[in-house]
Design a protein around this nucleic acid. Structure first.
Lengths: 229, 229
DNA sequence: ACATGATTGAAACATGTGTTTGAATCCGGC
DNA sequence: GCCGGATTCAAACACATGTTTCAATCATGT
């Protein structure tokens, strides 16, 4: 009756597989998860993954596309709220508000996994770009990035377009890497002898925001060549 | 006569393989290179890789350990020079000098590939930590990181140890990610419609340094909880 | 209760890829 | 000139892992 099981989001094994995939991808990365361990964790047969999702790549696409959408949605909401409030007060949104709105989608207590997953997606796309990572980046993330960069430009009139672009990407980089620190071997915690821990969300948030707001506040240097010292 | 070909750094095929590995790893990432394509590029038989290096992992270890050592060496030299000059002038090294010394090892015209390779190593360690990436990070990079953090602490007396640690890792993250942008699909160039290009080393250097120096210059907020808005 | 299509399960299949093999070849020293 | 180890080569091997098969089972509508 139902010809395509891939289009039945209500099927129980289907959501079991998705849940297991989300958990395992966050724990071990995409390449650290085999269809067999995935099926075992979901309590289904190995073939079920392909039966319900077509392929492992397709499953990853679906999981990560969802994560990307949730994150973008949350950041767009934050952005809209901030701009509405600023407009109501007859001013432009300021940098601190914007940076906080951006960071919030990665670092929030509600779904601590989604930040990790999103970070993993972006890193994975850098290390080993594939058709499905590229699709998510272009279809889900690029549009938001441009929208956010436009907001940043209004909030940072001391910078030209070029500089805002650079700093946006530097911001994303700093955030992704600090988030992914805990994915590997917890380098920061180890080097700081326990002083700094990215799993401490409040600390992470405070440090990130302080760092980034100051970085965006730096005066621009235009396209002029580096001045002699 | 020579029992272990793995310890003959002078053998011609050996260095051909190493050179090919360095080039291909920078172009396609470690996982994007098979022993077969590697051997083909080096003009040797497939078995030669294992004959001279034991295993692909061993080859990667050797290549990336070298890259890490070169980079650390260069940064330690920069650091020593800066601190000597500052001492001669009866002052402490300042943040701008230190940041520039750090960035320089990734972004220098002499060996444009080593920055890419180092970035790839770190990213790969985040996405898929393995014994050999961990070995390099711990044995080659951690010591330098602590040394550099100590220098930063002297240059930034307005920050406590915790904040310097955080910012060091945020700095590394921003740099690694901006460098790796060109490895994947050149996202920054695409989104900025050609305005920003990380392959433009002078621009990259200028933007990175401006961003990071300002970020380090931000006042610390201690360990106090976030002040109410 | 039956028929029919959806789902499950164990096993096999396909393939990419690191690695090893064993014979052939090269090369230096006696 | 020949011997022995070092090197090269094509081929085979090993094996992890994504995917497919096909029969067994389940569920549902009549």
């Amino acid at each position: 009756m139902c010809l395509n099981p891939a289009e039945r989001p209500d099927a129980a094994p289907r959501s079991a597989i998705r849940a297991a995939a989300e958990a395992l991808f966050a724990e071990n990365g995409i390449d650290g998860v085999t269809t067999r361990t995935l099926a075992e964790r979901a309590g289904v047969n190995t073939a079920a993954v392909n039966y319900y999702f077509g392929s492992k790549d397709n499953l990853a696409l679906e999981v990560f596309r969802d994560v990307a959408r949730r994150s973008v949605r949350r950041r767009l909401d934050n952005l809209a709220r901030i701009e509405a409030r600023a407009r109501a007060e007859g001013r432009a949104a300021d940098l601190a508000e914007l940076v906080e709105a951006f960071v919030d989608a990665y670092v929030n207590e509600d779904s601590p996994r989604s930040g990790l997953l999103l970070a993993h997606l972006v890193l994975r796309h850098r290390v080993r770009p594939t058709a499905w990572t590229r699709a998510i980046v272009r279809e889900e993330l690029d549009g938001f990035a441009l929208r956010f960069i436009a907001a940043l430009r209004r909030a940072a009139p001391h910078l030209d377009a070029r500089e805002v672009h650079w700093r946006y990407h530097l911001m994303v980089g700093a955030m992704i890497m600090i988030l992914s620190d805990q994915m590997a071997d917890g380098r920061m915690k180890r080097l700081s002898e326990g002083l700094c821990d990215p799993a401490d969300r409040a600390q992470l948030r405070r440090q990130l925001i302080g760092f980034l707001v100051a970085a965006f506040g730096a005066p621009g240097n235009g396209a002029r060549p580096e001045p002699a010292p």
